[in-house]
Amino acid sequence: MTQLGELLSIQQLRYSFGSRVAVKDVSLNVRQGEVFGLLGANGAGKTTTISCIAGLLKDWTGRMLFNGQQFAPAVHAHDRLQLGYVPQELAIYPNLTAEENLKFFAKLSRVPSSEMKQVVASNLELAGLSDRRRDLVATFSGGMQRRLNLACGLVHSPALILLDEPTVGVDPQSRNHIFETLMRLRAQGHSLIYTTHYMEEAQRLCDRIAIMHDGTIVAVGTHEELALSIGDRQANLEQVFLQLTGRSLRDE
């Protein structure tokens, strides 16, 4: 793979919920045009890490650089403009149509009104919802809502897209559609941070993967590099993951 320039660099990121440290000195680099996977069990710190990057949490310590510049998305709105956030929940409005939802988020993301029509149309196309553009979201299937949820995070064509488990509860067709969309975005030069605990998804989509365990990154690299790190070149991602994080149950 061609070595690409760094888009986001995180150093020693630390975040606590009261006395409980959720993210412990996490450092990672996301390159331009790559899909970077954050893989971990429930409570490993994936969502907290992505929330810090998205500007949802502000009291973190450490350092973030975006294109080599200081990056404080919780403080500066223009830093958040570089990001597209697709939350785990279906964060769309069921009483609006697909078109109205896209228009709403496009307006918040400062898409010029002259480009609005074209932006909305292209994102409806991306979500495969052009023929349902004027239908209320409440009438959509779960998969359609997931696709719209993704499209709402892309309306302003951000440089870095944060995807927090975007395929939870999605049927195979919609999941495949989402994967194809993400591949297309990567091909267009967007960078993606993708959190999941589905091994096969991470293996299929991600150029590099960071395995998180108990708030720390225990390993980072391509699938091959991770397999090598446990001394088994043939190991699949699940075997690597279990080897690195242990087999005990995660209840956090």
Partner: peptide, 11 residues
């Protein structure tokens, strides 16, 4: 509904 988190992530 989770939309507030998304709004917080908007610029």
């Amino acid at each position: 509904n989770g939309t507030l988190r998304r709004l917080f992530a908007q610029p």
